[in-house]
Computed example of a mutant assay.
Amino acid sequence: MKILVVDDDPYILELVNIHLSQAGYAVEKAANGYQALELIENDIPDLAIVDVMMPGMDGYELTKTLRARADIPVLLLTAKGELEDKEKGFLAGSDDYVVKPFEPKELLFRVNAILRRYEKAIDMLIEAGPLTINRKSYEVSAGKKIYLFPLKEFELLSILASRPNQVLTREMLLERVWGFDYEGDEQTLNVHIKRLRDKLEKLAKNVVISTVRGVGYKLEVLDK
């Protein structure tokens, strides 16, 4: 998934870029609101992280414009914590905010939470080769047959299938499926991936989950 980060502070811009990239997101950077609007003309991101205090066009104005033009979710970065500033951000159309200075892990928590909400609202049906994954009914269908997967396996499959050919890190998958407070080891993920592969082998041989050594997994639909 692609995230647009807008901040006139190059240190913050690079800090957010590093942590989002490590979490498996593609990042586009803009130093001000005008650059951000130029970028979305050709490529609309899945989410924008916007600093409030920027010269020329502040974060509130940029948020309104982003929502009007592309209707993408917005997370505001602000040095202010007063209630009226939070209210102003939400009235502008933002989905959440993080007060500076912030912990990078908290930023990732909030990014993932926003994206989960939008995914549930938008991508209820996912196509992967001959498979249709219904996130509303939690069913996987192949042809006229319908299958019910264990919940964790279903969530893993739907996340991987929603981003075909994109490598998702092990950390991201653990956070998205088991939660941020999961204290188990990565062997749990390995076991669930193996079970998914065994099921896919029987249902759709051209839908495979590949291991990217040292990084994570990706789902591919191969030519028959």
Rank of each mutant, 00 (worst) to 15 (best):
L108V: 10
N42A: 14
A26M: 07
Q187E: 14
A30C: 10
I12S: 06
D123S: 14
T65P: 03
N190A: 12
G81H: 10
I18R: 14
I133G: 00
D9C: 08
R195W: 02
I18Y: 12
G129L: 02
A36P: 15
A128Y: 01
T65H: 11
E84N: 12
L203G: 00
V177Q: 06
R69M: 13
L131D: 05
V6N: 09
K80G: 08
T78I: 08
A31V: 14
R116I: 05
S210A: 09
I193P: 14
E201V: 01
K145H: 07
F180N: 09
S21I: 01
A128N: 02
A79E: 07
L83T: 14
N206P: 07
S21W: 00
D46W: 03
P150Q: 09
R116E: 13
A23K: 00
P104F: 10
K194P: 00
Y182H: 09
A23E: 15
L196I: 15
K120I: 08
K105H: 12
L200I: 03
M124N: 12
R176S: 12
A113F: 10
G24F: 08
Q187K: 14
V208R: 15
A48C: 05
Q35P: 15
Q166P: 01
E84Y: 13
A68M: 12
N42I: 07
G24P: 01
I114S: 11
G24Q: 01
R135V: 00
I18S: 00
L156Q: 08
Q22W: 05
L62Y: 13
K88E: 12
E127K: 09
N134T: 02
P104D: 12
M172A: 14
G214R: 00
R116V: 05
P104G: 13
R163A: 07
A23T: 03
E220I: 04
S94G: 15
L174G: 02
L131K: 01
Y11A: 03
E201Q: 05
R67W: 08
F90L: 12
D71W: 07
E119R: 15
P55G: 08
I72S: 07
Q166R: 06
A36Q: 14
L151N: 11
L75Q: 09
G214I: 02
R163M: 04
R213Y: 11
